[in-house]
Amino acid sequence: MSAYPQGTAAAHGLAACHVCGKASSAALHRCPRCEAPIHVRKPDSLQRTIALLLTAVVLLLPANILPIMHTENLGRVTPSTILGGVVLLWEEGAYPIALVILIASVVVPIAKILILSTLVLGVARASTASPHDRARLYKVTEMVGRWSMIDVFVVAILVALINLGDLLTIRPGNAALAFAGVVVSTILAAGSFDPRLIWDQVPAQKESDA
């Protein structure tokens, strides 16, 4: 008796390659078709995901507290934070852009961390919540993560473009690197979570023989 649901590659002693999809003997270490490393399930998936999520949480603090950029205008230096930038855009009446930044820089990273933690907990506690819903949540976190990088790119563009010496210069703040670190660690966290773990607790039933 296999510990894996009937009909899965794992139950047949096969490991599916994450790069090309081929199912090969789990005894092999590399996929015979594309030579990528293969595993029945991603090794230490939950531990790695949690470690990367903790990294993201720790970096989230400096990313939101420290200034993301400094504006130097005639000798006066004005620091601005991520949230400060959103508030400023809102006050100027640029509502759609303020919302874009609020969602990309604040809502998405936090939602991503919460969702991935819930998915890890769900697997660890053998949750009975719908695997379809959980799999859908996972796919969303996988897709939206990169869009959080917008604010970092805005800083990069403003620093390169606005460089008029004493008159007006924009310099990067320490939050920019911290925030890039948040985005990179959440992308890596989503990549180390193995969605097959969600389905391993569900008996497989084929709806058709096709």
Partner: peptide, 12 residues
């Protein structure tokens, strides 16, 4: 054909 598995749920 090459045996393939679903990358989301591992069904062969």
């Amino acid at each position: 054909t090459t045996p393939v598995a679903c990358l989301e749920c591992d069904l062969l």
